[in-house]
């Protein structure tokens, strides 16, 4: 029941992208609330209760409040977006997301004039999230975007993969997807969205500001201090897969480069 995929294909659904398999997408995950191993989320995330679910939208909006997930869905147009997904750890996948544009959700709440940033928060439920017993990060997981990044048509809230509801390990019931940024920016299982005037604190940046900047745009020319970002390994190639060169803005340079005009991307990493 996704429908409407025949609508004018957004630039996002670029031709020639071969999606990874369901198994690859749903068994190799980073979701530290369920453990730091790549297979931990697939093993343990089933404990997360995603029904009912509501998202608090507050801060500089006209209609703040708790929005029921099903009510949000009924207002939104779900479409398919086949995006590259590039992890900061230098691996990548191609994922056929189903979702709606974040701009539509923000407009539903009514963004006020003073808002410049959007802050996001993941659910923090120690009883359902065994990984949060360890202080790997300062829970709850937090992320943020500049308002223009959030309103960009490539930025979506994903609710499905391969026309199926998004599995818990991938961020059920709804998560952010910002395809030109490293994967950790695409925060999962969102319970709160706050429009703010100031740049919000973000989890990995709080944990290690030298390694993880607020922007975290995919950039082959700016290395992570501990490894090169010039190339990546595509998941699914097996034991003898060769590395592929990483693309500027993860291949979405045409669509998003203008957002960062005049900015030194080595400083604003």
């Amino acid at each position: 029941g996704v429908g409407l995929t025949a609508m004018a294909k957004p630039a996002a659904a670029q031709d020639g992208l071969e999606p990874n398999t369901w198994e690859e997408i749903t068994t190799y995950n980073n979701y530290y609330e369920f453990g730091t191993g790549k297979d931990d989320p697939a093993k343990y995330a089933h404990t997360l209760v995603t029904e009912p679910w509501s998202v608090t939208i507050d801060g500089l909006v006209d209609r703040p409040g708790d929005y029921d997930f099903q009510a949000i869905l009924s207002e939104m147009t779900i479409e398919e977006r086949i995006y590259r997904f590039r992890c900061v750890e230098a691996w990548s996948m191609v994922i056929p997301w189903n979702g709606f544009e974040l701009a539509d959700l923000l407009n539903m709440a009514g963004v006020q004039d003073g808002a410049k940033y959007v802050a996001f928060e993941t659910a923090y439920r120690p009883d359902e999230m065994p990984g949060t017993r360890f202080p790997v990060l300062d829970w709850p997981y937090r992320e943020g975007l500049r308002l223009d990044e959030a309103m960009h048509p490539l930025t979506i809230m994903a609710t499905g993969i391969y026309d199926r509801p998004i599995p818990n390990q991938n961020g059920a019931p709804l998560r952010l997807v910002v395809p030109w940024k490293y994967g950790f920016k695409s925060i999962k299982s969102i319970v709160r969205i706050t429009l703010t005037e100031d740049e919000p604190p973000t989890s990995w940046n709080m944990s290690n500001p030298r390694e993880y900047g607020f922007y975290s745009n995919v950039n082959p020319n700016v290395d992570h201090p501990r490894w090169s970002q010039a190339s990546e390994r595509e998941i699914g190639g097996g034991l003898f897969a060769s590395r592929k060169p990483t693309l500027m803005f993860n291949g979405y340079e045409q669509e998003v480069a203008s957002l960062y005009e005049g900015m030194d991307l080595a400083k604003n990493y």
Binding site: T27, G236, G238
Partner: peptide, 15 residues
């Protein structure tokens, strides 16, 4: 195991 999928979908890192 790495050759036959027993180490998951990213066998290089796993091995």
């Amino acid at each position: 195991l790495g050759l036959t999928g027993g180490l998951g979908v990213e066998p290089i890192e796993a091995l």
